[in-house]
Design a protein around this nucleic acid. Sequence first.
DNA 1: CTGTTAGCGCTTTCAC
DNA 2: GTGAAAGCGCTAACAG
Lengths: 344, 344
Amino acid sequence: MSDNRTGTAGGRAATLSDVAKIAGVSLATASKAINGRGEVAAATRQRVLEAAKKISFTPNELARSLINGRTGTVGLLTSDLEGRFVIPILMGAEDAFGAGQVNVFLCDARGDAIREQHHLNALLTRRVDGIIVVGRSTDPRPSLGHNIPVPVVYAYAPSEDPTDVSITPDNRAGGRLAVEHLVACGRSKIAMITGEAAYAAAQDRAAGVMDALGDAGLELVGRPMFSEWSEHWGRDASAMLFRQFPDIDGIVAGSDQIARGVLDTMRDLGREVPHDVAVVSFDNWEILATNSRPELTSIDANLQQLGRMAATRIFDAIDGTAATPGVENLPGRLVIRGSTIARR
Amino acid sequence: MSDNRTGTAGGRAATLSDVAKIAGVSLATASKAINGRGEVAAATRQRVLEAAKKISFTPNELARSLINGRTGTVGLLTSDLEGRFVIPILMGAEDAFGAGQVNVFLCDARGDAIREQHHLNALLTRRVDGIIVVGRSTDPRPSLGHNIPVPVVYAYAPSEDPTDVSITPDNRAGGRLAVEHLVACGRSKIAMITGEAAYAAAQDRAAGVMDALGDAGLELVGRPMFSEWSEHWGRDASAMLFRQFPDIDGIVAGSDQIARGVLDTMRDLGREVPHDVAVVSFDNWEILATNSRPELTSIDANLQQLGRMAATRIFDAIDGTAATPGVENLPGRLVIRGSTIARR
DNA sequence: CTGTTAGCGCTTTCAC
DNA sequence: GTGAAAGCGCTAACAG
């Protein structure tokens, strides 16, 4: 049953010339037959394919890559330890490339510049066709520079260098979306509880909230409350807020985690969500958003699409279609659940 | 400033023969100098290195791999969509290999056997040195078979085939750990709320709980409650449970999510945690465990170590040290927080 | 239609 | 010490 030189462990892997020998043709013909290229007689092709199957020949992509200068691999360089952003982006990229067409090297730099450099070198040495850099916040990050021989796209965290290609969520538009939805739900006393003021995401979302409130002829109740991106802060801030402004009827939470905290406090305070207070948040992290009471209306950043777009940019750049440099802002989408509109 | 053939985009990448030409030496000498091999005169080596730097030469790993038969890459084949398990495992593997030494292809099969096969082929074609298969539950999964020319290790989900090498969390030991801790905290009326009975994780943890209760001369209050792995179920089940057995003083939750639900209900019922009821759960998913009131005592599966071990097994296999086939159970560790011992 | 030949970029004997 | 030459596995002209 077992051939003397199958592809199985132990013996060296079958090569194209093994196939050619067995099929009784030349190397070139075997190559053409296997790749469906050139004009090969049907019978010959058949013979070659059979030989290949017999010794379970697997073409060596390394050798191919060496010739055509393309490896069909892409590096994903990330500092997103939790994998919360990077996984959807990776999936989007795989989708865009086509499963199995392109493979992705995932490198976790753990927020360490030296480790990042190591990984970058390794990727270049492996001759990846392109690199997607995924940051862990939407704050601009240092550019890898322009000495990189392959296209680079920055996803989630844009590059500080405006001549790089970056794609990042449009948090300002997201902020607008949140408020417009609350207003559409008949709310007019709206407050905002969000994460650390140092984060661009916090600032951008707040700016969008302000924009939309202005457009609706409303004013924010109190000031945007910036602190931790945590449930604890959501609980504490909302307690504080309602002590001062008992008539609030809508809250924009800077993240699903914060919103979870807000819901807790509403419960403690005997305020019913969404009847008394409607809550909308950001991230649409399903594990948090769909397990609360009620479930959270949240703004999804469309990360999978972000990944697809990043992959497409890489592709275009490889094909010579230079992508327009600069930061592209990808709008999010509102996912409506029970925290703004009661289920029946 | 810019050289005519730097490694920058546009011109073709610098090759070793470019370096050799500039340094005025032969290809062979340049190779030796760059790799610190053979006896090369110090002055010559210096000259070569300078030439390399000048044109920013990056060795082509493909060519090297083609020669020595090793690529320094490993495939991580997963069906864990959320990345909750796979990311720590990936990090552990990177640690074991050494950052930048080995790169990891992350392939998401999305629970689809066909996609998995595609990815597997792609990995083999790329000549990875080994494959780590990461399942999304601890239930045994189908083997990839033994026709694979590189070592394969199954992590998290073991292979159904006992002649494969698998590493999986020891959930039974985890169940013991949970009960032993509750008992140490002085609890004796212990109940269990967990996820779907069809999951090995649910069964194994329950078995461990029973073991430890027996050892302590105790009996479980009621029967283990199996259903969804969700906060909702945690809330509902605990409400039901306390209606029937009001004197429960300890609960083992099958996951942090379930525990979160339990905490919610305790709050609604006016039971204080941990004073009236102590709660211990599984997964130690920090985002859930550290944001609840009180924070959750939880059993961490040591996934990062799991990844390290998987990587080590791969290494050993590559080096010819065949790993012992079979399933290895990795014990978890108890992380104590406020849900079992009150903070002061 | 098929085979011969020349590489892709690099390492590695083995002479000099 | 250094270099010439062979070859990793494959593709791409070009002849036959």
